[in-house]
Amino acid sequence: MLFAHGYGCDQNMWRFVTPAFQDTHRIVLFDHVGNGKSDLSAYRDSRHGSLAGYAEDILEIVQENDLRDVIFVGHSVSAMIGVLAAIREPERFSGIVMIGPSPRYIDDEADGYVGGFLHSDIEQMLESLDSNYLGWSSAMAPVIMGNPDRPELGEELTNSFCRTDPEIARKFARVTFLSDNRADLPDLRVPSLILQCADDVIAPAVVGDYVHKNTQESTFMALNATGHCPNLSAPEETVDAIKSWL
């Protein structure tokens, strides 16, 4: 099972979920480039300017570790990244679990699609990101810049989870929230599970429904968990849902 964290976090977000699969599956965790402990130098504007670039990263992980029959579990934007990767090399994947997926976050007036957000909301969110990284990045600077003689510094810091490189985070946010992958959904040939939380502002139920309707061999499960991160807020329910589908 290959777990891919969503936007704004890192592989730590899976820590309540993965133990449940440890005995039955090989667990592969990773951080998207720019997040967590990933190698920042691997970031390329050209490659990571679209979700396809992140999908290529997934395929590289799959190939280099020679993973087969992969159950890809993607949270949030990673659900779509997983879809793109599985379209490219379907023979590697046996299932895609999408937690809070959205093929497009912004409403499309032209065809009445509801994604939940306006363009201006995204811009404001980016501002919010800036406000938070302003204080954050100065404190994190020693860590980012590498401070081998004070390794404990990273531990002491608050909000030490889900570190992101601010510049990459901005770009990742743009890619995430401005992408439109609706046209890709019908191309997915791998069975998929859509986990839809109640009251998820990021990926509202209408969006989950849209994904389900446009994806072949997809199973739709509504969770009682609220919010956007059932893997954190309701890990048992999330685990149970995945297990039942498997």
Binding site: G8, F117, D121, M125, L129, D200, V201, I202
Partner: peptide, 19 residues
């Protein structure tokens, strides 16, 4: 605000759950 709702969902809430 809608933007901060996203931030809340993608950053704040997961962090709080984890830390």
């Amino acid at each position: 605000t809608p933007g901060d709702q996203i931030y809340h969902e993608t950053h704040y809430a997961p962090l709080l759950m984890m830390q």
